[in-house]
Design a protein around this nucleic acid. Structure first.
Lengths: 141, 141
DNA sequence: AAAAATCCTACTAAAATGGTAGGATAAAAC
DNA sequence: GTTTTATCCTACCATTTTAGTAGGATTTTT
């Protein structure tokens, strides 16, 4: 899990809090989330080309999520920055291990991959926001 | 999951098949598993310093597992080559994120980390060997 | 003593990571 | 219609990690 995925998640959380009529700019996200303004360029570009975020460019434009936060999973954000989930390289179709299907280890790595993938798909941006509310409540006590 | 962990798992599987009186040398593992003899040096060194493998002095010498295959998990092998499991860097104690406990994302990464850790701990070398027997049986059909 | 095996340290090419830099483009405000 | 402010786009780069290679020292067996 590299910084792009992590920052991507936090960016999506930030955008999910946008209220109708309100504008959220790259600058806002950069400041709130303490992510370099320029690096955020690449984060947002990734989210856009994955179809998770959209914008109208121009002076007052800002960004917006294309789907409700409850319909964007962490897996969606992960795949915005990675070709696919592969906990070991022999799972990505590029490289083909000589041992292939004879390899019990490979079967195990595939199962691990499934475990992780299922979990990433099960958590949405909305879940994270709810968790955030819960955390804020606990801190206020 | 880097090559050291993957090769480490396959090396442990190889050693687990050792019968009493039989010797398994680095050379054997290198040939059977198609791992460079010299690189295997480092793999075995890691397994040894983690206490999973020891050198036996007998007729010649060779290596042996220090525990039954059913009591060596993939997590044990993982930690032989990595300081600890951390799917994101802010989970390793070295770096401390400014957001710390206020961050819902971090809580999520921690849960993901637990999911992976539990799974790695749940699978033993013995499980992999049993799976291998199953695969061999299916291929023979 | 020779041979065969383990043990140990250092080096390195290539790729990935986590950014920075500089400017082009688009549209709203004046 | 020009200035301002925001997005968009491409290239570059330092550092770290990865996946080994290399060379030899030491120990054990024959």
């Amino acid at each position: 899990m590299n910084t792009k995925v992590r920052y991507g998640v936090r960016t999506a959380m930030e955008l999910a809090l946008k209220k109708p009529g309100e504008d959220i700019y790259q600058k806002d996200i950069s400041i709130n989330q303490e992510i370099s303004y320029k690096y955020l360029d690449q984060i947002i570009a990734g989210l856009k080309s994955a179809g998770l975020v959209t914008t109208v460019s121009g002076k007052k434009s800002g960004y917006i999520l294309t789907r409700e936060p409850g319909r964007i999973s962490v897996y969606d954000i992960y795949t915005a920055f990675n070709p696919g989930l592969a906990v070991v390289e022999c799972l990505s179709d590029e490289e083909v291990c000589k041992k292939e299907e004879r390899c019990a280890a490979k079967h195990f790595w595939e199962e691990l991959n499934d475990v992780v993938e299922r979990y990433l798909k099960s958590i949405t941006i909305n879940d994270l926001l709810e968790k955030q509310v819960e955390i804020n409540k606990q801190l206020a006590e």
